[in-house]
Write a protein that binds this DNA or RNA. Structure first.
Lengths: 204, 204
DNA sequence: TATTACATACCGACCGGTCGGTTTTTGAAC
DNA sequence: GTTCAAAAACCGACCGGTCGGTATGTAATA
């Protein structure tokens, strides 16, 4: 095996072990030794690949941000009409609230660290700004097309993203009570109803 | 001064110092010594009043829960019609998202700890269940009165509380971008629009 | 005097990070 | 293809310091 491949493999094992341990116990509680043990790697190898514990954390954050970016781009593009793309992006929120449950503790860690470390803050805030911007842009399109009421796009985008965040969080915290089937899509649908011009229940 | 009063004062000082330190630095990062220093109290006094660090944390949580209970009861009661009470309770969400910003780090701590310690989990989940229940009850009233569309009360309540949680969180994380004036009320209004029967924008 | 309230010194465990040394890989000379 | 030295990857013992909690004592109240 080439050295490069070995090195990359070790690095990858450290990262995936880190996300597993951080998810399980939080940033402060998880020790570097924990991560090393879970990754079958020595402490020396750890500090050979990363300058500090926080560096690993930030690397994870940036990796997640890249994924998110990709997802938004692929969903928000496409040539269809604004409302279609909007509800597709909104539907993504519902999916995330179900699929992403296991990752929520990690998001909580991101938020918590963001309040303390400025460099983490900037990276953490970014995805939400992008989400809101993507929604606002779509809503603006919808308004110009005449398919949505003339609301403030930014406020509506904030409302949508807020509901997404809240759904994910409550679903993770209290799956039994706050995460019935289709809860996400149902809730989002209620909000889109408030946005629609001449809502469909009286035009159909 | 009586012994009782002195004891109560010390206890109160520990609690308020704890909430200040936990808010500032998080649960794990804040040491018992930190709290003692901020409260001008010795470690002996600390462990005389509380059996452990976690016990202080839970005491804070329960205190907050009591306040919340009081608030919900006073707002959700009152003799007016359901929609009035509903929007008043919803308006509270908007207020919380502005006033409660400084407390958000503490809520994050609650959620984080809830994922690990079962006894914390139960206490943490409770307020959201009560919030949802209060909303669902009001929405049910509104539907029976005919002032709201016949949606699923539980789903609508989940949507409302989710938006509240999301607004609070984003407002705290990114005040500059995610917390324009009236953002909370504006966002909630959009959602209530989706709930209203024969919304005013197409009857006017 | 008995009990409650508080103070201080201290313990063992643990943690992030370092460091000297060892193994593995690499690339170039032969 | 073999050799070999330098570089990269890796190892694990160790260090200074911190932390939650305890043990033991003193001062104030009842």
């Amino acid at each position: 095996m080439t050295n490069q491949k070995r090195s990359d493999g070790t690095r990858a094992r450290i990262l995936s072990a880190a996300v597993e341990r951080f998810t399980h116990g939080g940033y402060d509680t998880t020790s570097v030794a924990d991560i090393c043990a879970a990754a079958n790697v020595s402490k020396g190898a750890f500090y050979h690949h990363f300058p500090s514990k926080q560096a690993v954390f930030i690397a994870l954050l940036e990796r997640w941000l890249d994924e998110l970016d990709e997802t938004i781009r692929s969903v928000a593009a496409g040539g269809e009409s604004a409302p279609v793309r909007l509800s597709r992006l909104a539907g993504l929120v519902g999916q995330v609230s179900e699929l992403g449950t296991g990752r929520v503790p990690m998001f909580l860690e991101f938020w918590r660290q963001a309040a303390k470390a400025p460099e983490v803050w900037q990276v953490t805030v970014e995805p939400y700004r992008r989400f809101r911007a993507a929604f606002a842009s779509l809503i603006g399109d919808g308004i110009r097309e005449g398919s949505l009421r003339a609301v403030d796009p930014d406020a509506a985008a904030l409302a949508l993203v807020s509901m997404g965040v809240g759904l994910v969080l409550q679903g993770a915290l209290d799956p039994a009570e706050a995460q019935p089937a289709d809860a996400g899509e149902h809730a989002v649908a209620l909000l889109l109803e408030g946005l629609a011009r001449g809502s469909d229940h009286d035009t159909k």
